[in-house]
């Protein structure tokens, strides 16, 4: 019922002008990449925008690398984001940002959670996990704007480490002009997360938002 009421009163002013806006979401299974994608997709739908999403299932899913293509706008037809044309690369884990780096546009934004999740392949001793500094440097060679944030720390500060994905949504909302308003994004979070976790998620969003605010002022 609540969903419908909001959909009717949705702000539709931006739908006319949005032709194409691509967000590539990546992370490791369990980090909430699919939930974050769902929140973005819902916000787009609430704003009366056309939205397409593509995700990974089956064998490709076992083991953790999760990627979701989110495409918003009237001139979007295909489920996959073309190489070099993502407006945002939204990565919940640093190596998972680098893994999909070809998707981000050179004018685009990378928001990346710096908290590493070391894959078992490193255990065999054949490969090492690169430093965050190194990953950050490489990301900057591909995208104009890169924001590194320890979303895990902020999520803990908000009251639950599982809210790292919502922290990141807050960072993204401040760092780029999304095709929907922040109020709608927050409304979408409210409709997605369990009621008892609402407060901590709102706090997580604000902590991310404020972090980006500060980050951008310092840049």
């Amino acid at each position: 019922m609540a969903v419908r009421a909001i959909e009717r009163t949705a702000v539709k002013d931006k739908s006319e002008e949005v032709e194409e806006f691509n967000i590539f979401v990546s992370g490791v299974g369990g980090q909430g990449a699919l939930t974050a994608s769902g929140i973005i997709a819902r916000a787009a739908k609430m704003s009366g925008l056309k939205i397409l999403a593509a995700e990974t299932h089956g064998m490709a899913q076992r083991g953790g690398s999760v990627s979701v293509h989110l495409r918003i706008g009237s001139k979007v037809f295909a489920p996959l984001i073309p190489v070099g044309r993502a407006h945002v690369l939204f990565a919940l884990e640093p190596s998972e940002a680098l893994r999909y780096i070809e998707y981000v546009s050179s004018d685009g934004l990378v928001v990346v959670n710096t908290k590493e999740i070391v894959p078992p392949s490193v255990n065999m001793g054949d490969v090492v996990y690169p430093s965050i500094e190194k990953i950050g440097e490489v990301l900057k060679e591909f995208a104009r704007k890169v924001i590194l944030v320890n979303a895990h720390e902020l999520a803990v500060k908000a009251g639950n480490p599982l809210t790292n994905n919502v922290v990141m949504l807050g960072v993204m909302a401040r760092a780029i002009d999304l095709p929907f308003s922040n109020d709608i994004l927050k409304e979408s979070i409210k409709l997605t997360v369990p009621e008892k976790a609402l407060e901590v998620n709102m706090k997580a969003f604000d902590l991310g938002y404020d972090y980006a605010e500060k980050y951008m002022r310092e840049m």
Partner: peptide, 14 residues
């Protein structure tokens, strides 16, 4: 991108 990814540890399905 492939060049840059050479430093990446693989995360195959497990």
């Amino acid at each position: 991108a492939n060049e840059a990814k050479k430093i990446l540890p693989p995360r195959p399905p497990i």
